[in-house]
Amino acid sequence: MSDNTPDPWATQAAELLAIAVTVAREAADTARSMRAEGVSGVSTKSTDTDVVTAADRAVERQVIAALGALRPGDTVLGEEFGGTAGDGAVRWIVDPIDGTVNYLYGLPVYAVSLAAEVEGVVVAGVVRNAATGDEWTATLGGGAFRGERRLTGSAQTDLAQALVATGFGYDAKRRAHQAEVLARLITRVRDIRRFGAAAIDLCLAAEGGFDAYFEKGLNPWDRAAGGLIASEAGLLVGGLDGRPAGNDMTVAAPPAIFGPLTDLLAEFDAAGGP
């Protein structure tokens, strides 16, 4: 292929991103307007602290319907309703409201996250903070952006000077284990932040809002779009001991501190426990 020949993979990723952005913006508008009307239909899932609202369900239904109209035959994997059947090569991965507890309390850190996956590889993703309108996007090999600004991540090379973000699970025993890990880590880094929305955390790491991020327990909808945005911004995104990012651990950090951070997390058994 000559340098002047368009890359069909890049063309497809760009087309999928355009769809994702349109659908995510409309979904974010719904989430924000429903929040303004007052949170309703609140219930719990895995534990008494793991909340879901009527808006979570309504937004996911809207995304599924919109994608079905634009891309009939594609599969959709969502947090609230699981997977929808399809015979296409594209699977969409959606978190309708990432940061539901923030949404419940009116804290302006909650997002619609939507990614397109082709043959098991995430090729396009968008995360839109529904409360503020901030939007992050990426395509595989095409870079990551906040609006029109290309993202390059943090240039930090010293873990001791790194601002590190994390999150916690909903199970009390898991939280206790995560707190033990954090108590050991906090003396080895500059400081810790916890915002309560994994997709936004990954995007803030991508733009250098903090230097690194780690969390145990992320599902595909938590990390699909944000993980692509972080990696396209130049961060390493993976798990511990050379494993890929997954439910047991997701780390996003600049190359210079990824190894030292994952080594400490492995030493502290961050991927272990409940």
Score class of each variant (00 low, 15 high):
G272Y: 06
G38Q: 03
R71E: 12
D241E: 05
A179C: 11
A233T: 05
D248C: 04
Y105W: 09
D211N: 09
A230R: 05
V90K: 05
S231P: 04
M1S: 14
F145E: 11
I192A: 07
A198E: 14
D134K: 06
T152H: 15
R91F: 04
G273V: 07
T157R: 13
A198N: 14
L228K: 13
A205P: 03
G196P: 07
E26D: 15
L114I: 10
L107Y: 14
A130N: 09
T53N: 08
P260T: 00
E15K: 10
T22I: 01
W92H: 08
A212R: 10
D98E: 05
E148L: 07
A69H: 06
T75G: 07
A85C: 03
G246L: 07
T30V: 15
K173D: 14
G38W: 10
G106I: 04
A27F: 00
G120E: 12
S43M: 07
E148K: 08
L77C: 07
W9Y: 09
V123K: 11
G83A: 15
S40A: 14
A224S: 15
G41Q: 07
P8Q: 06
E60Q: 05
F258E: 14
V126A: 10
P260I: 02
R149W: 01
G209N: 04
V181S: 11
Q12N: 03
L228A: 11
D241S: 11
G246F: 05
L185M: 06
E135R: 07
N4V: 13
D29C: 10
A183Q: 15
G106M: 12
A54P: 01
L265Q: 04
A28Q: 04
G68A: 06
A199L: 04
A256Y: 09
T250E: 06
Y105H: 15
T22R: 12
T100F: 03
A24E: 08
E207R: 11
T166A: 05
P72F: 00
Q62L: 14
Q161H: 05
H177S: 11
I19W: 01
A65E: 15
A36C: 10
A179H: 13
G82V: 10
V94A: 12
T11Q: 14
A138W: 09
D87N: 09
G208T: 02
D241H: 08
A31V: 13
G208L: 02
L114R: 04
A55N: 03
D56G: 03
L16S: 07
L70S: 15
R174G: 04
